[in-house]
């Protein structure tokens, strides 16, 4: 697997944490904080653990703590998948 697209991420997000209330996630939200989108820190943890399983990637807890936007997650995953 070469990387994660915004579409992949969005699909994982709604599968793990449920759809957003009355709003669609778009690429404009890449730099919007999860808390502003409507996802709490547990939702981010859930998304990260799903990505770890699907992509065979180990993400340390400290790295998850620093993921505050969708762009952070996608960027981290793509940097580390390339490195593998």
């Amino acid at each position: 697997m070469s990387g994660i697209t915004f579409g992949d991420f969005k699909a994982i997000m709604s599968r793990c944490a449920g759809e957003l209330d009355g709003r669609e996630l778009t690429e404009n939200d890449l730099d919007t904080a999860f808390t502003d989108i409507g996802y709490d820190s547990l939702a981010v943890l859930e998304i990260a653990s799903q990505i770890q399983r699907e992509y065979g990637l180990q993400i340390p807890d400290e790295a998850i703590e620093e993921m505050t936007t969708p762009g952070d997650v996608i960027g981290y995953v793509n940097r580390h998948l390339t490195a593998v």
Binding site: C16, A17, G18, L42
Partner: peptide, 8 residues
């Protein structure tokens, strides 16, 4: 409840 809350 919204799907997000049902999920958790």
């Amino acid at each position: 409840a919204p799907a997000r809350l049902v999920r958790e």
